Computed example of a mutant assay.
Amino acid sequence: MLPPRRLALTVATKLAAGAIAASAITVIGATTALAVEPYPSAPTITAVNSGPAATELQVVYTAPLADGGSPVTAYQVSIDGGTIWFTCAGVSGICPLGSLTSGQTYSVILRAVNGTGAGEISNTGVGIPAAAVTESADKPKVLPKPHVRVSATFNAASNNLGVTSPTVRLGVGALPKFRFSRDISNKAAVERNLAVTATNQDGVVRGVPGAWGWLDNRSVVFRPRSWWPGNSTINITSKLDNAVLGKSGRTYVVGSTELARTYSFMTGNSVVIKVDGKTDRMSVFIDG
């Protein structure tokens, strides 16, 4: 038997900080505090709507309460958390965004600019670019015939955590799963009609980047890009009702009207453990 190995343990903690908010799907987050002069205070995002084209969004906002002592001359928008800023066209209360990916969730923030510089950052809005039409290929006005309805069950913790109750807090590695009652041939249609957001303890909402993965023709799980945010409510908004999700032979498969709903679960503290086999060191990150 090999001798036991001794591990060095590092524990890092971080207090939860306020985060972000939403819309096309529209949910609006908390208002940011006023800026200190001479910079403008934060504008407020009230909605993020689909634009005229399937690759556009329109960010609707109200002006900051204080301009910092000089007129606001421009607004800037960011879709990557503030690393890169683009200047909005005009100061009319709507900031158009183009050249986006249709169906992808975008988190958007704004700031006002005066003669001195950029001011406080707004709450965050979340939007999904989609063609602004009354009918789409997924959800035609008149359903094709013949068709059958498909339903689905939801499991918030499919990766053997054994918890499905929406009142029990899950770990940040949980994998929510949908199990459909029939085979789905148009899997992209399912993914286009499911949107994932997270609401933190301050009531602020943000989009959750990630991807859907199919286990077979009936089961699909969502994996966030990194981990779920801790101490949050995760909402998966379904618009699968009356959506055409493929065919079975000559019969179309259409989402049940009961699929027009939001599926939710909660996460507890973010606890991430990383082990370095080369140094025999284990690091535990709690809410950080």
Rank of each mutant, 00 (worst) to 15 (best):
V272L: 02
S136V: 02
T257G: 11
R225V: 14
A174L: 11
D216Q: 04
A30E: 15
S248F: 02
P96W: 06
A53R: 11
I128R: 02
D280Q: 15
T105M: 03
S70N: 08
P43W: 05
L170Q: 04
M282F: 00
A132D: 11
T101D: 04
V172G: 13
S78Q: 01
V163E: 12
E191A: 05
W214Q: 04
L259P: 10
A47N: 06
L57C: 02
P166K: 05
L97R: 01
L175V: 12
T32V: 07
V91T: 15
S136I: 03
P224N: 12
V108Q: 04
L15N: 12
G171N: 13
S151H: 00
S158I: 01
V275F: 13
V11N: 14
P209S: 13
A12E: 13
G203E: 15
D202M: 07
S264F: 06
I273R: 07
G103W: 00
S92I: 05
R281C: 03
V113Y: 01
V221S: 07
A22S: 06
C95M: 09
S248A: 05
A53G: 13
P144S: 01
A174V: 10
N231P: 06
T13C: 13
E37A: 13
G29K: 14
A42Y: 04
A195V: 13
P146H: 12
T262G: 08
P64L: 01
S70H: 02
P4Y: 04
V284G: 09
A63K: 08
T267S: 05
P96Y: 05
L161T: 10
I79S: 10
R261S: 07
I234V: 14
R182V: 10
G119N: 03
F222P: 08
V253L: 09
A137M: 09
S185A: 12
K187Y: 04
T10V: 12
W212V: 00
G213K: 09
T134L: 15
F180A: 00
S107I: 00
A198Y: 03
V254M: 09
T262C: 01
G277S: 11
G203I: 10
A19R: 13
R261E: 01
P3E: 05
Q58Y: 11
M1P: 11
F180N: 03
E258F: 06
L170T: 03
R6H: 14
M1H: 15
L175M: 14
N217S: 14
A188R: 02
G69H: 10
G162Q: 13
A24W: 09
S41K: 03
D280I: 12
I128K: 00
T257F: 09
T251Y: 09
S283T: 11
N242H: 10
D241S: 06
P52V: 14
S165L: 06
I286K: 02
A21R: 11
A131L: 09
C88I: 08
A112C: 08
N231L: 14
P166R: 03
